[in-house]
């Protein structure tokens, strides 16, 4: 499983963010989704969707080793995390997400639900193991 995005297909619906937060926090709150969508309007009029590429830069700067490698995925242990947010600054693509009600940042764990439910197939598994539902 390697998440990649194709921004040219994104329509900005935020289904990915809403489902991500629901699955990981049991909350209907897209602001807790572990990926980023930016609208570039009025010009040029496109969306940019950014997903975690599991580069591990976050883990490299974590002072308490709260982010550890499981297979190919870096997982954040929210109980170990001290909320210093060093990883947020270190993330080269800005997808260590922050929410005012959460002490720890929010990190993608490669669950694949965004791939399964992105209506536009703008988020994909480069390994082809996970596909949009119905494909």
């Amino acid at each position: 499983m390697r998440l990649v995005s194709d921004s040219s297909k994104c329509s900005g619906c935020k289904v990915c963010q809403t489902l991500c937060a629901l699955v990981h926090f049991d909350e209907n709150n897209p602001k807790k989704g572990a990926l980023k969508i930016e609208g570039k309007f009025p010009v040029p009029g496109v969306y940019e969707v950014t997903v975690c590429n599991q580069c591990g830069e976050c883990a490299a700067v974590c002072p308490v080793d709260a982010i550890t490698l499981h297979g190919t995925t870096w997982i954040l242990d929210r109980d170990t995390c001290i909320g210093c947010m060093a990883c947020v600054t270190a993330c080269p693509i800005g997808v260590m997400m922050v929410h005012p009600d959460e002490e720890a940042p929010i990190k993608c764990d490669d669950c694949g639900d965004c791939v399964r439910y992105c209506p536009r197939e703008a988020i994909l598994d480069a390994d082809g193991e996970v596909k949009r539902m119905g494909r």
Binding site: G12, C13, K14, G45, R120
Partner: peptide, 19 residues
């Protein structure tokens, strides 16, 4: 058409953002 543009949580973006 430049982009298919959706409202929140819509799987069938009717918005056709154009140039």
């Amino acid at each position: 058409k430049v982009t298919d543009k959706a409202c929140y949580s819509c799987p069938i973006p009717c918005g056709k953002y154009s140039h």
